[in-house]
Design a protein around this nucleic acid. Structure first.
Length: 330
DNA sequence: AAATTAGACAACCGCAGCTAG
DNA sequence: TCTAGCTGCGGTTGTCTAATT
């Protein structure tokens, strides 16, 4: 368009790089309370030093409650390949066929796995063709342009690849239909990558806030294995966003989540609040893996903390944390 | 054990399209 | 109709981790 537009954010004043748990919490809490009507205004309102775009991206790709993480299944990969044949690099359109999957995720899978597979498959096909050609060369005319052999339609290659993969792996499901459970109705109702969400109603807010972070973890097994969307947990863990800016600031004041607490503004807080806050913080630190699990002090006490222990194994580190379920494909 | 390389994926950037004024 | 602002999309980069040398 070429119109002079104001930049979406002042890059000098905006934080960059990986999101901290505190930022995630803040974003989640804000969207829980207020929804996201205007991404541009959201960071300011939520007190985040991020641009609206980044907040949106973080929400859509990560924090959204219906986001599905974990490895792509064989069927999903096949479906991506199939859709890519027809849609090209329209990642958002492709993602619309996969409830809970994000365009970014699909794009990454394509670029890291599927594209390479297709290329190697294509090379294999080419080699086969060449060997065929050479064997037939004696009996057939030689005016065939060698490029033509390679210039077969991509769809043919991909289709070939797909059926080949399916037969090789003995995948049982029907190859080209929508993946299991992916009815169009579920798609339209479950996922809108770009759709705006309103303020969540109380039912939607039920459950641990940590449900949002990093997908869903198996609480009982304490593993980072993604589990199906859990039943709503008993404990509503609702952060009152407006309740106390000091609290958010305190979280931020830990910087990269040091555990050596430095209290600030002591005189302002009531002891009651501080007690709640300390529990909250202890729980949070435990959740974030910042507090040694051996430490008794780190373990939250009190009935209000029951059912909130969902610490994924080793997914977080100081200053950098993954709330993803790291695939084990390497 | 340290250094290097490759793979994976989160995050950023800029453009396109839509919409309101 | 034009302009400006906003959101969404897709390409690309940056960073971290695992594997290899």
């Amino acid at each position: 368009m070429g119109k002079g537009r104001t930049p979406c954010c002042d890059k000098e004043k905006v934080k960059r790089g990986p999101w901290s748990p505190a930022e995630d919490l803040r974003l989640i809490s804000f969207i829980q309370k207020h929804g996201h009507q205007k991404w541009r205004a959201l960071p300011k309102q939520a007190g985040l030093l991020r641009c609206g775009k980044c907040c949106r991206l973080r929400w859509i790709n990560y924090l959204r409650p219906d986001v599905k993480r974990g490895n792509f299944t064989k069927d999903e990969e096949d479906e991506i390949i199939r859709l890519h044949e027809t849609l090209g690099n329209k990642w958002s359109k492709i993602a619309a066929h996969f409830p809970g999957r994000t365009d970014n995720e699909i794009k990454n899978v394509w670029n890291t796995h599927l594209k390479k597979r297709l290329i190697s498959k294509k090379e294999n096909t080419q080699q086969k063709d060449e060997s065929k050609d050479s064997s037939m060369a004696t009996s057939s005319s030689s005016d065939k342009n060698p490029r033509e052999a390679f210039a077969m339609p991509a769809s043919d290659n991909a289709q070939d690849f797909k059926t080949d993969q399916l037969s090789n792996h003995g995948s049982s499901s029907s190859p080209s239909e929508e993946p299991e459970g992916l009815s169009s109705s579920s798609i339209s109702s479950n996922v809108t990558n770009s759709g705006q969400v309103g303020v969540l109603n109380p039912e939607d807010q039920v459950g641990s806030l940590f449900n949002f972070i990093g997908g869903y973890y198996d609480v009982n097994n304490n593993t980072s294995e993604e589990v199906n969307k859990p039943d709503i947990l008993d404990t509503a863990f609702d952060i009152s966003f407006e309740s106390d800016w000091e609290f958010w600031n305190m979280l931020d004041s830990f910087g990269p989540f040091q555990s050596d607490e430095t209290e600030s503004n002591d005189g302002i807080r009531s002891s009651n609040f501080r007690e709640v806050e300390n529990k909250w913080l202890m729980c949070l630190e435990y959740e974030l893996g910042l507090e040694s699990e051996d430490s008794d002090e780190a373990k939250p006490v009190g009935p209000e903390m029951n059912g909130m222990m969902m610490k994924p194994e080793g997914d977080m580190e100081m200053g950098h944390y993954h709330n993803t379920v790291q695939p084990s494909t390497k």
